[in-house]
């Protein structure tokens, strides 16, 4: 294990901002993309159901 404590891990040798910003942004983009696609699918299904009921 590389880290002496959790706080050392979160500190990232003084580069906490850069490292966690990078990983956070990547995670955020991916989560957002999945959520956006789920919404898009739900919306598409809703519209087809409206069409089908007509």
């Amino acid at each position: 294990m590389q880290w002496e404590s959790w706080s050392a891990f979160f500190n990232m040798g003084g580069y906490a901002f850069y490292v966690w910003f990078s990983f956070g942004l990547t995670a955020l983009c991916m989560v957002w993309e999945v959520i956006a696609l789920r919404k898009r699918r739900a919306e598409a299904l809703r519209l087809t159901q409206l069409l089908a009921q007509d």
């Binding site: 294990m1 590389q2 880290w3 990232m12 040798g13 580069y15 850069y18 490292v19 990078s22 990983f23």
Partner: peptide
């Protein structure tokens, strides 16, 4: 984060490559 050692020159900041290079 747990196994890869700290880089000599770049310290911990190099760990950004684990998202940067794959992306």
């Amino acid at each position: 984060f747990a196994i890869a050692p700290t880089d000599f020159q770049q310290g911990e900041a190099y760990r950004i490559i684990f998202v940067h290079v794959p992306a």
